[in-house]
Simulated assay, not measured.
Amino acid sequence: MSLAFAIGYTVISAVPTGLGLLAVFRPYTLALWEERLDSIGSKRDWETVEPTDWKVSLTRTQGGILLLFGLFIALFAVNHWLAFFTAHTLT
């Protein structure tokens, strides 16, 4: 296995893992940000929009799924790093 695959899987796994952690631990903030973006161009005021409870729960659930996906990709990264270091320490 090459070093490029190990680095690539590491970088690719960092994005969904980071976003998933944000959505799991700060779902209200993320849902509020999405609602504020949705209010652009409408008559709703930017400061007065609030996400509903189901929106916050949905954001947390989606974040958990995204986090699991990121960790799954991280397993490939660990596999490639181990293969890389094993191949270079034996020679």
Rank of each mutant, 00 (worst) to 15 (best):
D38I: 05
T48H: 05
W33I: 12
L90Q: 09
E35M: 14
V49C: 07
D38Q: 15
T52L: 11
A83G: 08
T48N: 10
K55H: 14
Y28W: 09
T29Y: 11
L22Y: 08
R60F: 12
A87I: 04
L32G: 05
W81T: 01
L21K: 13
T17S: 13
E47A: 08
F76A: 10
L30A: 12
W54R: 07
I7Y: 05
A23E: 08
T86P: 03
M1V: 06
D38V: 06
M1A: 06
L68D: 09
R60M: 11
A6P: 03
F85N: 00
A6Q: 01
A4R: 11
A4I: 09
V78M: 06
L37S: 12
D45C: 06
F69L: 15
T59M: 15
F69H: 07
T91W: 03
R36N: 12
I12G: 01
E35Q: 15
T89I: 01
I73P: 04
T29G: 07
A14L: 14
P51G: 07
G18C: 08
G20R: 02
A77H: 02
E35D: 15
L66Y: 00
K43I: 13
L3K: 05
R26A: 07
L58F: 13
H88T: 12
L37C: 11
T59V: 15
L75N: 11
L30T: 05
S39D: 10
Q62N: 14
V56P: 02
T91P: 01
I73K: 06
T17W: 06
P27E: 12
H88K: 07
D53W: 03
F69C: 13
L67C: 02
W54Y: 09
S57N: 09
V49G: 06
L22K: 15
L67Q: 02
E35T: 09
V24Y: 11
L82S: 04
I7W: 04
D45M: 07
W46P: 01
L58T: 15
A77Y: 01
K55G: 11
V49N: 08
K55C: 07
F5D: 09
E47I: 08
A23F: 03
T29C: 04
W46H: 07
R60Q: 13
I65L: 13
W54C: 05
Y9L: 08
W54A: 09
L67I: 04
Q62V: 15
G64M: 10
W33V: 09
W54Q: 12
A4L: 08
E47H: 04
I12V: 06
F5Q: 14
